[in-house]
Design a protein around this nucleic acid. Structure first.
Lengths: 342, 342
DNA sequence: TTGTAGGCGTTATCAG
DNA sequence: CTGATAACGCCTACAA
């Protein structure tokens, strides 16, 4: 198992009768190297097929050019789109992308963060595990000045760079949309309530109800652990068995919303007329379910791209940048699951 | 931006009055180091919070502990599951996973392979881009003895390690299932016909027809570029406008199959009685569409895991292993889109 | 503008 | 069983 080493800056230096440092500097367009020298060096580098040994450079600089991405699950439409956007942006800038998944477990999250740290990533993008409530495991990166950007599921009270959507506004608009379609008793499927995104979505939901003077009824507000299809079915079953069932559901994700539609159909409840349903994320499955599911668009690919751009920006600036939160736009995508015929 | 260096083997060596080499060897359980020494060294390593600098080790060993995964698209259910399986297995073994996507373009594939090579990955898992017909860009890895494992979309005639499913058998069984449900005129949606998986699926389809003495009719066999939802709609529209439309469709993926159902429903064609539809991959959307889509299960997570295991096995063995093709089992998952009432 | 020299932290090769 | 020494390939004060 021998790896061919390839051409080094020493080889080029020898051939050109200059020192290796000159070659090194020329290759990186160091200002103090003559234009002519730079040109000659680069020309030979190409001719000889020189390739930077990033490992050696990493050792010297004490960091790699790998950006780590930690997410709860890779195989979810929203997340894999986010990764896709991040990967494309990173690669375009000459960085690699390392991925790992917490499976929504805090222990995994801690382990993976540690592994990332030890492999000397040069930047980290994180969407928190459902379980995560403490953030000490990120401290080593802060101490280290390794840029971190939190995306989507973020630590609300941590002073850190973040890329999010306005969950409150999105939820407000989604709920408002249901009200505009005539719903007066709207249930809510939320996620773990310590997670900011779910807390905010619930707040948006409640604020919309308030604005329209509709009562907030705790008995039709649920919080799922995972908002899985299974949970969606169970929650809907509970709702529809109530003496006064709701006439609308705002679900904090699409999976549970789809289940709601499926369950409603199975017991002869008409969607959207008896029960209007709106989800969140605008996953591809919105277009598969019948009737098509209204949802809130989520710019996942863009979020991934911007997170990488933030990492690069932070790295590029010498001083510590003030932490910044970038909020991306979302909109209600109205489809047949909420559009009632007049 | 200063990175804390942390404890090195020199620090441990100094404190224990042994040489750094002894520490290094003790840490890796080198056989020629005394049990006692090993114990002492490891104990101190833990106490002092020593962490291996993988970059330095990589420089010395000329390879990293990063496994690269190149896939067409990350944000597809089947692929993200495959990555998920690979990531979990790699991480459990102490490896990181680098991902990149070709977007089904050969140029991207070549670029990404080059980037992987330059970042000195220690193993590579590849599922080919739709466009790929030549494989020279992998040569550098072969010359280098860096293990490659091809998964799913593989180079048929290249002597290499592969993890696949038996596409011919799967397609045969799927087609047979349609026949058993009474279909006599079965159309086929295939992918790029130079890709082995699609060629094999078509062969399986044709062989099933032959076995049951059904004619093979080229006019109801399509090959999509991407097998997208859009293509699915168009192909179905063509089929249903024929003087003698088919009574069954075997699609080489689920996306196009779902479109077929949607189109059929939109023009009042009953699924499964007028038109039975079966897809491939058993994506989550099979359970969303109404009627639920029959499909062929695809052990994507397992495929990812096994690919990583193969990489590790190849690395572990000193001599060049004979190339091996591992074929995973699939089965027909029959649902309402094909199950006709007697 | 360029060269020199030392070091990043580890591992492999020799000797003992 | 253990130690000294020399790489791995690059970068960066400091010197010239």
């Amino acid at each position: 198992m021998k790896k061919k080493t390839g051409v080094t800056i020493y080889d080029l230096a020898a051939e050109l009768n200059v020192s290796p440092s000159t070659v090194s500097r020329a290759l990186q367009n160091h200002p103090s190297i003559g234009k002519a020298t730079i040109k000659i060096v680069k020309k030979l580098a190409i001719e000889r097929g020189y390739r930077l040994n990033t490992i050696a450079a990493s050792l010297r600089k004490r960091e790699t050019n790998n950006i780590g991405i930690l997410v709860p699950w890779i195989n979810r439409p929203f997340i894999s789109s986010l990764i896709s956007g991040a990967e494309a942006a990173a690669r375009a800038a000459g960085y690699n992308v390392l991925i790992s998944q917490s499976h929504d477990s805090i222990d995994n999250e801690i382990d993976n963060i540690k592994a990332f740290f030890e492999s000397r990533i040069c930047g980290l993008i994180v969407s928190l595990a459902m379980e995560t409530k403490e953030f000490d495991h990120f401290d080593r990166f802060f101490e280290n000045d390794t840029p971190i950007v939190f995306v989507d599921r973020i630590p609300e009270h941590l002073d850190a760079h973040k890329v999010i959507i306005d969950n409150h506004a999105a939820a407000f608009k989604a709920t408002q949309h249901l009200i505009e379609q005539g719903c007066r008793r709207i249930a809510h499927f939320g996620g773990a309530s310590h997670q900011t995104i779910y807390k905010e979505r619930r707040r948006g939901y409640e604020d919309a109800l308030k604005k329209y003077n509709l009562p907030i009824d705790e008995s039709i507000i649920f919080h799922g652990d995972r908002l899985s299809a299974d949970e969606g079915l169970k929650m809907t079953a509970l709702l529809l068995k109530m003496p006064v069932p709701p006439d609308g559901i705002f679900s904090a994700n699409d999976t549970a919303a789809v289940s709601a539609i499926q369950y409603a159909k199975s017991v002869g409840v008409n969607v959207p007329n008896d029960l209007a349903v709106i989800g969140f994320n605008n996953d591809p499955l919105c277009l598969i379910i019948d009737p098509p599911l209204s949802s809130v668009s989520h710019p996942a690919v863009e979020m991934g791209r911007i997170a990488v751009e933030q990492i690069l920006k932070i790295k590029a600036s010498k001083e510590d940048l003030l932490t910044q939160t970038i909020t991306l736009k979302t909109e209600v995508v109205a489809r047949a699951s909420t559009l009632r015929k007049p």
